[in-house]
Design a binder for these strands. Structure first.
Length: 507
RNA sequence: GCGCCCGUAGCUCAGUGGAUAGAGCGCCCGCCUCCGGAGCGGGAGGUCAGAGGUUCGAAUCCUCUCGGGCGCACCA
């Protein structure tokens, strides 16, 4: 939930203007604590002089509680300067909200849903690679954001436990056990050799290894879904979609819902295709959930249209299936670019990456960039275990706030009266904190978790500047400033949690 | 050929209609008798790929062009 103090300001402004207004935080402090372009919008619509409209708005806004001063600037911006009382109120509200500050945007809007996020879903034919790691880091961050917004979220992992790929994988390990070459298109690599030395089904062992890797990576899977179970629901699911027979095969008419070609579900020999399982799985998902989110690599983008088509047939609305596509991960090693692939030689496994740069840096790097951006990780640089990683800069804020409370002692009063005049750094910090609810609400709505690290770095900047300029302990403003430290600690801890990074008390 | 994604500082990238386009890394110059210097301040570095268009206003929206990535199975 956004701060009442900010909402009140927006509401008062809307009342003054007569319509919803945008409230922005200018980069330049000279442009006020908040600004609105309402006059520009209004003037355009009503064919009036923007500065005259702005003057009218400014006059009314000057009377709004908490507004200390109003200025008209540029082409017709109305710039607002807030009073110390307003800042104190905002700071108190943030602390009162505690760790829930910023939560519940979907609940407030009445749009909360039961959502399944299907993520990773790599077949158990090898250890998770860095590509799957991006899927996990991105998908899990989206899931955490949606949960924070108030949705009921289940994270599911779907895997193939039968079929050609599994057979080839088992045969590859068996061949190795007999000291023979793997079959054509078989699996090779050190991990195959290792599995050959162990007894039992290599698929089961791989699954266990994947579970351990994900747990280490702090991706919690609520539900593991087997393909063989879903396949049993194929006949029932096919009744729910529009099919026809041609050339001896059974097709789904996905073109009726925007796909560029119809898709075969039953081959002319009667065998179901892989897409038939997709249909059954969609049927399964939409029975239990309002919305099914798929997290897929860019090499699967061709699936989007057909998945949405069957969602339209089964669920009555294509939007009940949502496919999040993330671009591939490239690794830069020794200045050379290497494509990821389980069977190519130049492969980096998730566990190797975690050994090299740690869970915190890995999670951070993999969500810091937008999903549409091809990600490049320079392994040589990331391996350099040092404070060059921006994640440490943000974690340091948390450690520093903890240090201040340790130093202040248990009995210290937190959140006293503000001084008559606030330092610019104090104002910037409070405004930055007040923005958090909007950042997470938008990040959740847009499925763009990269906004969280970006925001966290800005907040870290503001806190470090505040810390540098405003002494906290042993000054008359101690209680007031400890209040700001506490508010920062809450928000930074939440940011780190949303991207799956630890918030350390000491570093 | 068709489709999806990308092109922003030397490098890796934020920024989905507002004021002087930002961060990290790298480079240059400052700041610890003072709560943690894993910090702070300052500087150099941009035709936001290009060309049109919409708009009071475009990195952002539309069209085209040029570059790069990824896909276009009765495979899984």
């Amino acid at each position: 939930m956004p701060l009442p103090s900010v909402e009140r300001l927006a509401a008062a402004l809307a009342a003054a203007v007569g319509t919803e207004v945008e409230l922005t935080r200018p980069n330049d402090p000279a442009h006020g604590d908040f600004a609105t372009n309402a006059a520009l919008k209004l003037a355009g619509r009503e064919k009036r002089n923007p500065r005259e409209v702005a003057a009218g708005i400014a006059e009314k806004v000057a009377a709004v509680p908490g507004v200390e001063r109003v200025e008209i600037a540029g082409p017709g911006f109305v710039n607002l300067f807030m009073s110390t009382t307003w800042y104190a109120e905002a700071a108190a509200e943030i602390r009162a909200a505690g760790s829930d500050f910023g939560a519940g945007s979907a609940t407030a809007a009445g749009t909360q849903q039961r959502i399944q996020v299907e993520l990773v879903s790599a077949n158990p034919t090898g250890p998770l690679t860095v590509g799957s790691a991006r899927n996990g880091a991105y998908g899990d961050a989206v899931a955490r954001l949606l949960r924070f917004a108030g949705h009921d979220v289940v994270e599911e992992y779907y895997f193939n436990d039968s079929g050609g790929q599994m057979d080839r994988f088992r045969q590859s390990v068996d061949a190795r056990r007999r000291g023979e070459q793997p079959p054509e298109d078989g699996y090779v690599g050190a991990y195959v050799d290792d599995l050959a030395k162990l007894d039992g089904d290599p698929v089961e062992r791989m699954l266990t290894a994947i579970e351990l890797s994900l747990a280490r990576f702090r991706v919690h899977i609520d539900s593991w879904q087997k393909q063989t179970v879903i396949e049993q629901e194929i006949p029932e699911a096919l009744k729910a979609v529009d099919t026809f027979v041609e050339d001896g095969a059974t097709w789904v008419r996905t073109t009726a819902h925007g796909d560029d070609k119809d898709r075969v579900v039953l081959r002319s020999n009667g065998e179901p295709t892989y897409f038939a399982a997709d249909v059954a799985y969609m049927h399964h998902k939409l029975r239990d959930f309002d919305r099914a989110i798929y997290v897929l690599g860019a090499d699967h983008h061709g699936y989007v249209a057909r998945l949405k088509a069957i969602a339209a047939m089964i669920g009555g609305d294509a939007d009940r299936a949502e496919v999040l596509i993330y671009q591939l991960v490239h690794l830069l090693r020794g200045g050379e670019k290497a494509r990821m692939g389980k069977r190519s030689g130049n492969v980096v496994f998730l566990d190797d990456l975690l050994d090299e740069i740690g869970v915190d840096a890995a999670r951070w790097y993999l969500v810091e960039r937008g999903p549409d951006q091809t990600l490049e990780i320079d392994v040589d640089l990331a391996t350099e275990k040092s404070r060059k990683n921006p994640v440490y800069y943000v974690q340091y804020v948390h450690a520093r706030t903890c240090g201040l409370f340790r130093e202040a002692g248990d009995g210290a009063e937190i959140g006293g009266e503000p001084p008559a005049e606030l330092a610019p750094e104090e104002k910037e910090l409070i405004k930055q904190l007040a923005e958090f609810p909007y950042v997470v609400a938008e990040a959740a709505a847009r499925r763009g978790p990269q906004a969280v690290p970006t925001y966290a770095i800005q907040l870290a900047d503001d806190f470090h500047r505040f810390y540098h300029e405003c002494r906290v302990l042993g000054v008359p403003e101690q209680a007031w400033r400890l209040g700001l430290v506490q508010a920062t600690q809450q928000v930074i801890a939440r940011c780190l949690d949303l991207v799956g990074v630890d918030a350390p008390e000491r570093m």
